[in-house]
Amino acid sequence: MAWWKRLTGKKLFWPLVALALLLAFNLFFTPHFFQIQIKQGHLYGNVIDILKNGSPIMLLAIGMTLVIATKGIDISVGSVAAISAGVVAMLIGGDLQGIPKHPIFESIVLAVLVCTVAGLWNGMLVSRIGMQPIIATLILFVAGRGIAMVTTNAMVVWLYAKPFAIIGQGYVFGLPFSLYMVVVLLLMTLFVTRRTALGLFIEAVGINPTAARFAGINAKNIILLVYAFSGFCAGIAGLIVCSNVMSADGNNAGVGYELDAILAVVLGGTSLNGGKFNLLGSIVGALIIETLTVTIYAFNVPPEIAQVVKAVVVYIISLLQSSKFRSSVANMFGRRELAA
């Protein structure tokens, strides 16, 4: 039983079990779920959609993981993603012939820059002014949508500049372009947090900021950095959302993404109490959420009850993650065996 203990002791084990259970359900109940074809020179199927449509949440979850590791939270990411979409749409412009008003690359860089500044603003409020993270980011959660509305003039702006579509709809070597962005960002973040001392610093700040400061860590700047990074991730996520439908919708782009991102981080096994974090777990968490969404569409759950089904599944997965719950269930069965 030692191997079983070692296996279940792995951080990624339970998130992967949850994902596997969801996929197993689809294997039996949604006939074409795993079917993958090649269409127009790229892979085509539900699984590819999960990777493509899940990439914004995966990106947000990467940023959110580091924020949560410092015992913070960033609820502004959905609104910041909407700002990114609004800024890029404003710069590229809705020209019907697809001629961009400003060069596409510059527009993208500027949009991400604006979102990084938004993240810096959050970080300033938390680290320098000492606001509670949930309140500090609540400001942009509300105001961000307003800013996004201003950039799009409260209209849905349609984009026709073809090259911009690559970000959210393009494929490279058969796989969605957005997935590569996630992988690159993930590898970079993993490298910086696992191969340098930064990861340790972030965990130290999350566990005890005062002790971290006495140990010589500049806790304020670490906090500033993680919020700026979260804003940066939200900026890229916003680009994908905008490019996927080639339109920027200040009201609806990225609505509820902050909660999905937080859920992804929690499902991935990172505690909201800060400290130890698990980036790969957050990615798995994001995949669980997106798989659930696609499952609901594919299984054709009536829309009136779709949200309830989602809630119940998330509830069960969360229970599965809790080691306390698991051990109490194990105890229950253990006792019964003794009685018999």
Binding site: P31, G45, N46, D49, N53, N244, V245, N252, Y297
Partner: peptide, 23 residues
């Protein structure tokens, strides 16, 4: 044969239709 909510949004309509077309 199938009916889902796309929340009146472009992104919603696209995501639901993608899933429909596969099934």
């Amino acid at each position: 044969t199938r009916s889902q909510s796309g929340d009146f949004t472009t992104a919603g309509g696209k995501a639901v239709m993608e899933a429909f077309l596969k099934e």
